[in-house]
């Protein structure tokens, strides 16, 4: 029987269906892995309440582990502690940047209503002369920005705390 370390390694091969460069480990959504009495339990937490990728990720985890010969798998979903972009690994941030998505920046709390939009450097040319186009982008987890220097329009993986 495999141990939990091995399971974590296998999970490295399960990617986010919407941002395929990121694995579920990079995203920080796998909260626990346990093996008890032959049952392998993987606990995940959603990024956003309505994230349509969660069901797919759950199925992908089960399928991946089945491929590795682990038949008895259960995926549990927990809500608390709630996911934060702080859990995206350093490696994950680097991959996002290379993929053309600006990784989350440290932001002021959203409860400050009249704050200026966060400055997000361009993933293409690194200029910080950029502007927010929209607080909402192609998926719930992204905002839409444009670079004023190289004109690149890009997604920003917005900070969630």
């Amino acid at each position: 029987m495999v141990d939990t370390n091995q399971i974590w390694k296998y999970l490295e091969e399960v990617s986010d269906p919407e941002i395929p460069v990121l694995t579920v480990n990079d995203l920080g959504i796998v909260r626990n892995v346990s093996i008890e009495g032959g049952l392998c339990k993987v606990t995940i937490t959603p990024t956003y309440s309505g994230c349509p990728a969660m069901k797919r990720i759950e199925d992908d985890i089960i399928e991946k582990l089945k491929d590795k010969g682990i038949e008895n798998v259960k995926v549990d979903l927990v809500l608390s502690p709630a996911w934060t972009t702080d859990w995206i690994t350093e490696n994950g941030r680097q991959k996002l940047l290379e993929y053309g998505i600006a990784p989350p920046q440290d932001e002021v709390d959203k409860s400050v209503l009249f704050a200026e939009p966060t400055n997000v450097p361009c993933p293409k040319c690194s200029s910080s002369n950029t502007r927010m186009i929209s607080q909402f982008g192609s998926t719930a987890c992204k905002a839409h920005y444009q670079c004023n220097e190289c004109m690149e329009p890009y997604d920003y993986f917005k900070c969630l705390k």
């Binding site: 956003y48 309440s49 809500l79 709630a82 959203k110 209503l113 909402f136 969630l160």
Partner: peptide, 24 residues
């Protein structure tokens, strides 16, 4: 109620974004 608190914790983060958008 722990479960209700967990739902609130998850939803609050999203709601802050909504409020920022609507108030602006």
């Amino acid at each position: 109620d722990e479960h209700l608190a967990a739902i609130a914790e998850k939803s609050l983060k999203e709601t802050k974004y909504h409020l920022k958008h609507s108030s602006e």
